[in-house]
């Protein structure tokens, strides 16, 4: 048995999915791969079922928005964790603003349910196969995706705020 570390994890992934991994990085010791978004389910189920790694804990799912990154404006970021080997992996899947769709991983992890809903709520990323994809934190009537960079932070309906006091 070889030691389970980032190099081993990467080798295991490269053996199976080399064609779909576009970039590999290791910021602050956490292996990060960029993955073709079509492959998210196969990769995650491979990691879950892998006898050595057993990456069965989905720590986190979140979205990101890069307005200047043409064709790859939106991203979902997955953090998976193996409790048995104490190793983490970060997977990034980029997608374009025109087709913000990615497979839902709720079939593998129940915890992804709300996290994907939150990502949809904030970024408008649609998770295909999600059982109940609707807004979670914001009001249902909301028409935009507030965490996208073009939308402002502040409440636009405010009337009591004098801009001159804020140097604008």
């Amino acid at each position: 048995m070889s030691e389970v570390n980032n190099a081993y994890l990467l080798k295991e992934l490269q053996d199976q999915f080399a064609a779909f991994i576009t970039q590999v990085d290791e910021p602050y010791g956490l292996l990060t791969i960029e993955l073709d978004k079509e492959q998210i389910l196969p990769v995650l189920s491979f990691l879950v079922k892998h006898p050595e790694l057993q990456m069965q804990f989905l720590t986190d799912v979140c979205g990101m928005h890069f307005p200047d990154n043409k064709g790859k404006e939106l991203a979902t970021v997955y953090h998976v964790h193996s409790f048995t080997k104490n190793i983490r992996l970060r997977i990034k899947c980029y997608m374009s603003l025109d087709a913000p769709q990615i497979d839902s991983v709720t079939s593998l992890f129940g915890s992804a349910n709300w996290q994907e809903r939150e990502t949809f709520d904030f970024f408008g990323i649609e998770f295909i196969g999600h059982p109940n994809l609707k807004r979670i934190l914001n009001v249902d009537e909301m028409e935009y995706f507030p965490m996208r960079k073009e939308y402002p932070l502040e409440d636009q309906t405010r009337t009591d705020k004098d801009d001159t006091y804020f140097g604008r």
Binding site: P27, Y28, L30, T32, T59, D60, C62, M64, V77, H79, R88, R90
Partner: peptide, 19 residues
Amino acid sequence: GEVYHSVEGGNGELGFYLV
């Protein structure tokens, strides 16, 4: 850079993913 750090919060793993 990007960094993920987690601490044991009052009710579980409180993580910060900072880009």
